[in-house]
C-alpha cells in the first residue's frame, strides 16, 4: 500500500514533533490519520506505517491492538461509541444505548445493514459532567444525549446520507 502525498505530509508533521531517532513516537498519530482516511487500520496499512516509520510490523500491530479506539475491521460510516461507565450509567446511559439499539435495529457491536452505523459501548470518554455522552467517529463528542437528541442525530445523519 502506498499513502498519498497528502497523507505522508500529515505523517511528517507528526514525525517532526519527536527527535530524529524517535520516529516510532509518531505511530499512534499516523494510525489515527490512517483510520480517519480509511475508516479502519488494515494489516496492509499497519505494514505500510511500519515501513514509513522504520518499525517492525508487529510493533505497529501491538499498538493497534492495545488501544481501544483503533478499528481492526471496517465499521459503519458512523461509529457511535456510547459511554456506559458509572458517571454516565447514573445519568441514563443504559437507556441511551437500548434506545439506539431499538432505533437502529441492531445490537451492541453490530453495524446496520445499510453500512451507516456501528453501535458500541465505550469506557470513560472523559466528559462526565455532560453525561450521558457519545463519541462519534473518534472526534465528535456529543453531550447530554437524551432519547430526543439521539433521534435528532440519527435522523439527521440518515437524511444527509439519503437513507430516509
Amino acid at each position: 500500500m502506498n499513502f498519498s502525498e497528502q497523507t505522508t505530509a500529515l505523517f511528517d508533521r507528526e514525525v517532526a514533533k519527536y527527535p530524529p531517532d524517535q520516529k516510532q513516537s509518531a505511530v499512534m498519530a499516523c494510525l489515527t490519520i490512517v483510520q480517519r482516511e480509511q475508516g479502519w487500520v488494515s494489516p496492509d496499512s499497519e505494514k505500510a506505517v511500519a515501513e514509513y516509520l522504520g518499525m517492525a510490523p508487529m510493533a505497529v500491530h501491538e499498538v493497534t491492538t492495545f488501544y481501544n479506539m483503533y478499528n481492526q475491521r471496517p465499521l459503519g460510516k458512523y461509529k457511535l461509541n456510547v459511554c456506559t461507565n458509572l458517571p454516565c450509567q447514573l445519568r441514563n446511559a443504559s437507556q441511551a444505548l437500548s434506545h439506539l439499539e431499538t432505533k437502529l435495529g441492531i445490537a451492541l457491536g453490530e453495524t446496520t445493514a445499510d453500512g451507516l452505523f456501528t453501535l458500541q459501548q465505550s469506557e470513560c470518554l472523559g466528559a462526565c459532567a455532560d453525561a450521558p455522552v457519545m463519541l462519534v467517529n473518534d472526534v465528535n463528542m456529543c453531550s447530554f444525549m437524551s432519547n430526543d437528541k439521539l433521534d435528532q442525530l440519527v435522523d439527521g445523519l440518515k437524511a444527509l446520507e439519503g437513507k430516509q
Binding site: Y78, A129, D130, N140, M141, G156, L157, L160
Partner: peptide
C-alpha cells in the same frame, strides 16, 4: 449540511 455540522449541534458548550 455536512455530517460535521449535524454533529456539532451536540458538542458541549461549556455553559453547564
Amino acid at each position: 449540511m455536512s455530517a460535521a455540522t449535524i454533529l456539532s449541534q451536540f458538542a458541549a458548550t461549556g455553559v453547564q
